[in-house]
């Protein structure tokens, strides 16, 4: 699948530490990771293993202590790469309608920003409405965030992350706060969006089934310092269905991932009593 060997993101011997002297915290040990253009990579692992740190490094929100973070062939930040982000918390702006929320990136990101005033009532508006329809929010464009349920807000948040046709899509536990059925629905929505637009996706998640269902590759991480211990390809045909996640191959995959994370947690010098499911 999608083995476009065009590399888009590359982390080379990257480390990241906070603080200095004796109180230094190694958030990320030496990490190497290459993500092909249009690939879908999931990062799983116990909490505090630096999954979100990798997302922030790739978007340039954090800078590496040592090593290189390359995006689109150049050092991160050198090239204006269009990035979309979505988090567990939908973070929509309560004073804007859903449509205006979705259109927010168009107001900020070039080349759209120059045309925003001219096109916000025509082309951009249609673009937002089309995207909302694709995620099943047709007819909700004029509502305000507080009038929608959590799952609907998360759909809108995905639209906001995708409206400006990002080359890079960063998802940090986007479905973490949703119930099982809504989550499965949104997996299908996300898969559909990815297959039609093919951004390069990095997905951080705690849910192994989610990682297996959505991603082409699953990277298992380990904490203190964070590093990648396993990098697995998921060779299932697309579009994938929820039924596939109950087939033996898939189950053995998630079991294997689970075993890796459990052993990572057991090796952790701090007690794994944080109560977070692996």
């Amino acid at each position: 699948m999608s083995n476009a060997r065009d590399e888009f993101v590359r982390l080379q011997q990257v480390t990241l530490s906070y603080g200095r002297g004796e109180r230094v915290v190694h958030a990320l040990g030496e990490t190497n990771l290459t993500v092909g253009k249009g690939d879908f990579v999931a990062l799983v692992g116990p909490s505090g293993c630096g999954k979100s740190t990798i997302l922030k490094l790739v978007t340039g929100l954090l800078s590496a202590t040592t090593g290189w973070v390359m995006v689109a062939g150049r050092e991160v930040g050198a090239e204006p790469v269009r990035v979309g982000m979505a988090f567990q918390n939908p973070t929509l702006l309560p004073w804007l309608s859903i449509r205006d929320n979705v259109m927010l990136p168009l107001k900020i990101v070039p080349p759209f920003r120059q045309e925003y005033r001219a096109k916000r009532k025509t082309e951009f508006r249609d673009r937002a409405d089309a995207l909302l329809e694709q995620v099943g929010l047709k007819g909700f464009a004029d509502k305000y965030p507080w009038q929608l349920s959590g799952g609907m807000l998360q759909r809108a948040s995905l639209c906001r992350a995708l409206i400006h046709d990002p080359q890079l899509l960063m998802l940090d536990e986007p479905f973490g706060a949703l119930d099982q059925f809504t989550r499965e629905e949104l997996w299908a929505v996300l898969q559909d969006l990815w297959m039609t637009r093919r951004p390069t996706v990095l997905l951080v998640t705690h849910d192994l089934k989610e990682a297996g269902y959505l991603a082409n590759r699953v990277c298992v991480m380990r904490a203190r310092p964070g590093h990648i211990v396993e990098d697995r390809h998921v060779d299932l045909p697309r579009p994938r269905t929820i039924d596939m996640t109950y087939e033996p191959d898939f189950v053995s995959l998630t079991q294997r991932l689970r075993a890796l994370i459990v052993s990572a947690r057991a090796d952790d010098p701090l007690p794994a009593a944080t109560g977070e499911p692996a």
């Binding site: 990035v83 918390n89 107001k107 990101v109 400006h164």
Partner: peptide
């Protein structure tokens, strides 16, 4: 998190001030 979203979009400080 919202600030991260805006920064990832390369919003300037003024963009963040006026929009958020």
């Amino acid at each position: 998190e919202l600030e991260d979203v805006m920064k990832a979009l390369r919003a300037t400080k003024l963009d963040i001030l006026f929009n958020v």
